[in-house]
Computed example of a mutant assay.
Amino acid sequence: MMYGEVNGRRPRVLMLHSGGTLGMEASLSFEQDGDLREGSGGVYEDKLQPGRFLENVLGLVPELSMLGADLQLQVWCNVDSCRLVPSDWSAMARELDRQRNAFDSFVVITGTDTLAYVASALSFMLVGFNKPVVVTGSQRPLSMARSDARQNLADAVTCAVDGIGFVREVCVCFGGLLLRGNRTKKTHSIAYRAFSSPTFPPLARLGMDIIFRHDLLLPEMEYTPRFDICPYVMRVPVVPGLDPYLAYGSVAERGIRGVILEVFGVGNCDDRDEAGWIPWVRDMRVEGVEFFLTSQCEDGHLYPDRYRSGKAALLLGAKNSKLMTCEAA
């Protein structure tokens, strides 16, 4: 069998484009000095055609045609990623599920602002997908000089092709790293290595060679897709001196179903009744609101049971999110 072949044929890779900076109209979106035009947020072509866009991609990134794969591109949408909401993530997951048997691996192109949310959501909706789903994007449009889009696309497609047979999960490929999708955060607003995985090592590092950490990759498992996702979740950081009753009141009355409570350190907050946090959690739990504890720290484990407040929250039914990012939670 030739390198890169699947059952005696070239691997089939679907590139699913959902917008973001990579496909932005550079000439209309950026000033001559390279800065995004003030107040524009970028310009996106409404009727982007898959064939023409793929030709443009292959023209700007000719190495894609050298990777030994049959590439197909589907323009699912072409919008600023801040406009992608949970119903869009669910629809994207359904499309990947629909195409699962027709392709060997997948590359999802999206915008960096919500890329970590997209990757996290897809990872939970497509548990046991058992094929590479590599999410990528760029900090500059593909057609701009010095764009990181070319390298990110080449890296993402390479990981999607080389990972067939052992990468069985949703990943993020960006800035020379392959990261677990639901452990990824955008940690820099303008750097080309914009994403990191503070609580989990990279699945691969891309340089002259691709060094996969096979010991970290998920094993094959039963495919159990689920596409329903609840959007009525809010993040609440614990702020010293802030009264949660004054700041948030009864979130249940406003339809909130879940709260990501961002606590201090390994799982602490002011446990005094007059501080209000534990009584507020207790009242909201009575009203049926689910609580997940995350740390305000970027790195490290969460051990809320080591503190009186954290233990109290757990006894009230709050869940320890452990190593999860806020985006994943």
Results as ranks from 00 to 15, higher is better:
Thr136Asp: 04
Asp162Trp: 01
Arg146Gln: 14
Ala149Asp: 00
Thr158Pro: 00
Asn152Leu: 09
Ala160Pro: 02
Arg140Asn: 06
Arg146Asn: 15
Ser138Lys: 05
Thr136Gln: 03
Asp155Trp: 11
Val161Phe: 01
Thr158Gly: 12
Ala160Gln: 05
Ser138Thr: 04
Met144Arg: 08
Gly165Thr: 02
Leu153Glu: 04
Ser147Phe: 11
Ala149His: 00
Arg150Trp: 06
Ile164Lys: 11
Arg146Thr: 07
Gln139Cys: 12
Thr158Arg: 04
Asp162Gln: 14
Arg150Ala: 14
Ala156Gln: 09
Gly163Ser: 05
Arg140Ala: 14
Gln139Lys: 13
Gly137Pro: 13
Cys159Ser: 13
Ala145Met: 11
Ala156Tyr: 11
Asn152Lys: 02
Pro141Trp: 04
Ser147Tyr: 06
Asp148Gly: 11
Met144Thr: 12
Pro141Ser: 05
Gln139Glu: 11
Leu153Trp: 01
Arg146Met: 12
Ala160Ser: 13
Ala160Trp: 02
Arg146Lys: 13
Ala154Phe: 09
Ser143His: 13
Leu153Arg: 06
Cys159Glu: 05
Leu142Tyr: 08
Asp155Thr: 14
Ala160Gly: 11
Ala145Pro: 09
Ala160Lys: 01
Pro141Lys: 07
Cys159Met: 15
Ala160Phe: 14
Thr158His: 01
Gly137Ala: 02
Ala145Asp: 07
Asp148Glu: 03
Ser138Asp: 06
Leu153Gln: 03
Phe166Asn: 09
Thr136Glu: 00
Asn152Tyr: 13
Ala156His: 04
Met144Gly: 12
Ser143Gly: 15
Val167Trp: 01
Gly137Trp: 03
Asp148Asn: 04
Thr136Ser: 13
Thr136Cys: 09
Gly163Gln: 02
Val161Lys: 01
Asp155Leu: 07
Asp162Pro: 04
Val157Ala: 01
Ser138Ile: 00
Val157Asp: 01
Ala154Ser: 15
Asn152Val: 10
Arg150Ile: 04
Gly163Asp: 05
Met144Ala: 01
Val167Tyr: 00
Ala145Gly: 12
Val161Cys: 03
Ser147Ala: 14
Phe166Trp: 12
Gly137His: 15
Gln139Met: 15
Phe166Val: 08
Arg140Thr: 06
Ser147Thr: 15
Thr136Met: 07
Thr158Met: 10
Arg140Gln: 10
Val167His: 01
Pro141His: 03
Gly137Ile: 01
Val161Pro: 13
Ala154Asn: 03
Cys159Gln: 11
Asp155Tyr: 05
Asn152Phe: 13
Arg146Gly: 06
Gln139Leu: 14
Cys159Ile: 15
Asp148Tyr: 08
Arg150Leu: 10
Ala145Asn: 07
Val167Leu: 15
Arg150Thr: 10
Pro141Asn: 04
Leu153Gly: 02
Ala156Phe: 02
Val157Tyr: 00
Gln139Thr: 09
Val167Phe: 08
Arg140Pro: 02
Gln139Phe: 00
Ile164His: 05
Val167Ala: 07
Asp162Ala: 14
Gly165Tyr: 08
Pro141Leu: 07
Ser147Met: 05
Ser138Leu: 08
Arg150Gly: 13
Val157Ser: 05
Ser147Leu: 14
Asn152Ser: 05
Arg140Phe: 09
Gly137Leu: 12
Val161Met: 07
Ser143Asp: 15
Gly165Leu: 06
Gln139Gly: 11
Gly165Lys: 04
